[in-house]
């Protein structure tokens, strides 16, 4: 059986909120290392990969591998019933028909119990190769969100170029063009504002802004976002969570000209 208690229901709420517009029906794969999810969007352009490690829960118990097939719209409805300070416990039997969600108030004696019917989801798992990226950029998540939202007003796609000059986000549209360049930057007082660029080779790739704006819905999960780029491979957009957990998005580049 699965029993996973999360001190902050809000964390799970935010994760589901961040991915629900990208993917609809997902398997939450539970085993003794934690709860993982991998799902592609309908058009097979983007891939979501979430890992909530067992250390993120207290207690965490999962005796055998269980795939919880959940519709995220249904999950969102139920998670709305949790208050942000509530403690969340996910429960399921070994061959479950439902997943149970229990919300407990830390301050009062309220206990709310919900269940969601599970779905049989035939999901293909993709093998994500270990990649030595040509450029890795860590930057404030809010800054990345702002850049994507600003540029989508002008164009459908953005080129991300990383060189020794810094990282340049540029777009061209019908009304004109826009570009934002960031250089490495250290803020001693506010390290969450740092921009760190590690580059082993110059990279230049073009991506659909619609997807990037969608990924940025995860901005509330982490102060910083990490962008990993190599020429001609998918972009990795990573939000790190506590206890070595993470929410990652992969986006296939635009190709040709």
């Amino acid at each position: 059986m699965l029993e996973a208690r999360l001190e902050q229901a809000n964390l799970f709420k935010k994760v589901v909120d961040a991915i629900k517009d990208l993917v609809q029906d997902c398997n939450f794969d539970c085993n003794d290392s934690g709860i993982a999810l991998q799902a592609m969007d309908n058009s097979h352009v983007a891939l979501v990969s979430m890992m909530l490690r067992s250390e993120s829960f207290a207690p965490f118990r999962c005796d055998r591998n269980i795939a919880l097939g959940i519709n995220l719209t249904s999950l969102t409805k139920v998670l709305k019933c949790a208050q942000s300070d509530d403690i969340l416990t996910l429960k399921a039997e070994d061959a479950p028909d439902v997943v149970e969600l229990v919300f407990e108030s830390a301050e009062s004696d309220r206990i709310s119990e919900y269940s969601i019917k599970l779905m049989d989801i035939d999901q293909e798992h993709l093998g994500i190769p270990e990649t030595d990226y040509g450029a890795t950029i860590s930057m404030p998540a809010a800054e990345f969100q702002r850049i994507c939202r600003d540029l989508i007003a002008l164009s459908e796609s953005v080129s991300i170029e990383c060189s020794k000059e810094g990282v340049k986000f540029a777009c061209q549209g019908d009304i004109g063009s826009g570009a934002v360049t960031l250089r490495q930057h250290t803020n001693v007082d506010k390290p969450e504002m740092n921009v760190e660029i590690n580059m082993s080779e110059p990279v230049s790739l073009t991506f659909s802004l619609k997807y990037l704006v969608n990924f940025c819905k995860a901005s509330g999960l982490s102060n910083q976002v990490r962008l990993c780029l190599s020429n001609e491979v998918p972009l990795l957009v990573e939000y790190s969570l506590a206890n070595n957990s993470h929410l990652r998005f992969y986006l296939a580049p635009k190709i040709g000209d």
């Binding site: 097979h44 798992h125 993709l126 994500i128 491979v233 998918p234 296939a252 190709i255 040709g256």
Partner: peptide, 14 residues
Amino acid sequence: GAGQGNIMSFFGKK
């Protein structure tokens, strides 16, 4: 214009 790549052409099925 540029075409959109498919994530499955980069990450093979397990």
